[in-house]
Amino acid sequence: MTTIKAQMPGVFYRRPAPEKPVYVDDGEEISQGQTIALIEVMKTFNEVKADESGTVAEFLVEDGDEVDVGQDIVRLGEV
């Protein structure tokens, strides 16, 4: 199973701002380097970028959840 992992601990967000749409939807194709989420660490926001291309099979973390370093965030399917 290919996944994208959290590079830092913090609070996970799927949207750039609460009133904005999600960065990517389930089933959407993404390319390497694309921003797919944010992780908030001590009030600073860090972009989570896809480390490879693929299709978003499933988000493994809910918007607003806590994540740890190395935790799987997204499961990728084949393009």
């Binding site: 830092m8 601990p9 913090g10 609070v11 908030e40 660490v41 001590m42 009030k43 806590e66």
Partner: peptide, 8 residues
Amino acid sequence: RISPFYDS
């Protein structure tokens, strides 16, 4: 632990 959830 200085947690990532609050201020620094």
